[in-house]
Write a protein that binds this DNA or RNA. Sequence first.
RNA 1: GGAGAGGUACCCGAGUGGCCAAAGGGGGCAGACUGUAAAUCUGCUGGCGAUGCCUACGGAGGUUCAAAUCCUCCCCUCUCCA
Length: 411
Amino acid sequence: MNDTVYSVLQKRGFIEQVSDEEGLNKALEQKIVCYAGFDPTADSLHVGHLLPIMALVQMQKHGHRPIVLLGGGTAMIGDPSGKTETRKILSREEVIQNTESIRQQFIRYLDFETQDGALLLNNATWLEPLTYITFLRDIGRHFSVNKMLAAESYRSRLATGLNFIEFNYMLLQAYDFLHLYQTQKCILQLGGNDQWGNILAGIDLIRRMHGGTAYGLTLPLITTASGTKMGKTEKGAIWLDPKKTSPYDYYQFWINTDDRDVKRFLLLFTLLSIDEIEKLMAIAEQEGWNAVKRVLAFEATALTHGYTAAQHAQESARSVFYGDGFYLDSLPSTIFSFDKIRGGIPAFILFADTGLCASRSDARRLIDEGGGYVNNQRLKSFDEKINTSHIKDGVILLRAGKKKYHRVIIK
RNA sequence: GGAGAGGUACCCGAGUGGCCAAAGGGGGCAGACUGUAAAUCUGCUGGCGAUGCCUACGGAGGUUCAAAUCCUCCCCUCUCCA
């Protein structure tokens, strides 16, 4: 007997809370339609979105129909859940633009082509035409303000302040669920745990208006073993768009996973079977964690950027960390003219101009602290001149600290 | 609408005329140690070819030799009352 989706999701660590475990299990015996929403608040998805995506992937893998709901309408409002303060309201143009660029990114993960394949919808389609009075009468009357205020996502905001526009977010998300229930027979919503209240509101609305039954399942908030929110680094999010986070950096992000997180991440963010993952754990015991982290990084990169890009990233990493690392095109790089360095250019200016350092002052600091390298030779002074003698095969290899490499291509 | 409190760097938060590019903590970066891990210790953490100059304590003006600090107006947030 094959495992059901539910038990797979459970074993892999996808499940935080379920509205009605027994009922959902029963419902999952048939093919169902489920959805997860993604608000286009930026022009790319990031690693934080990966969990609901992978959950949808697992659903599709097990024969169910996933809907990707782009929040072109809800993004205009701004979800207060899990946020400590109101975020700035995006302009219409931004939302539309973001929606377009995010749309493309889902194609990698889900199959939208085959019959009954995944669907991609935008809630702006039905939210924008709503009229206020009608909405209040039809939908608004089903909501108890007392109940809403008791919801964690709002309660935590009462101290710091909650704007009325945000207060409405729950209604809109509930309405989305209702709409998908009516038009697509969608009976399950997946979402982050901070969405729990919003999801329940949808289930409730469906019951009140149609006497229908729907389910909700929330995914755990993924924090790393060291306690930080996953996928956020000081440089900002790890994006899924290769133009914003290169496949090489993406691969490096996964390689740098904390030992304690490796197994969990393999289960959540790769499609390797549970058996295979167990085997990898045995390998970690014998050969050390790096071997297994390479598998994690490769699999995760391949899912997001494709097999070839993952291979390139892996080769670059290997060459840079274990070889001389010169010929690798997937490292971040900048092209400079020969003229620029002909007369010799001070190292700190070069570091700043490539973007490897945020400013010249930053570059001076880095080099003063012994963290600046050219061709893997540590620089002694920030104004050391870099000139044509440093070019090897048309490239000067810069390095900041232990891991950040940058190629300067001289043309 | 009324009364009160407040807005300081990436975040929290001290500072109530000069010694303030602004204590302390967190975060981050670098170094050492390592396994491209974790933990620990040390240094750094606005910009500028730089023992100095410029910009910065919600915004705009003003007082002063000197303003994060005092005054005026404005904007925003919170608490209580309506």
